[in-house]
Amino acid sequence: MKLFLIFMGAVVVNNFVLSRFLGICPFLGVSKKIETAFSMGIAVTFVMTLSAMASWLIQNYILIPFGLERFLQIVSFILVIASLVQFVEMVIQKTSPALYQALGIYLPLITTNCAILGLALLIALKEYSLIESLAFGFGAGAGFTLAITMMAGIREELQFGDVPKPLEGAAIALIIAGLMSMAFMGFSGLIAM
């Protein structure tokens, strides 16, 4: 039950994009088409789950035992996540070209995104267990996918809308993001965490 609560909490209540305001750049940059937005979301979910595991291991087996968690957290998380994703990318490219094509350029792009680092730091902060970290990472990714796909859907529809001239392009995208964020505020209190 607790795992489910962590998962749902990461998807809707504390959605990374709309409540924590992490990963805004891909959220605005890659949300012009539903198709690409969804692939981006899948890639983010993949990397988040992976980095949740990696950062938990680093935190609990290297940083805490040596008393380094206060000042080496960020740099070691980034180092580990970036190399791990690079490694996984190579493996995927070799073993499954179809999956590599689907994730495409997004995979290496998001390794150093703030949402990924934010996730790693949050896991350390909340002192989750390994399984809980995985659930949290997967939920965060799913929440990101949900948000970016919705955003892309709205922006696609908006092509046909009558947007006032000064608000065209990035301006209206930011307004939509704000409105979506306000809508997601409605989920707060759904789960007491």
């Binding site: 680093i58 290297i62 940083l63 040596f66 380094l68 080496l72 740099v75 070691s76 180092l79």
Partner: peptide
């Protein structure tokens, strides 16, 4: 610090 970071 140096050893662990270097090691990783």
């Amino acid at each position: 610090s140096v050893i662990s970071m270097g090691g990783i």
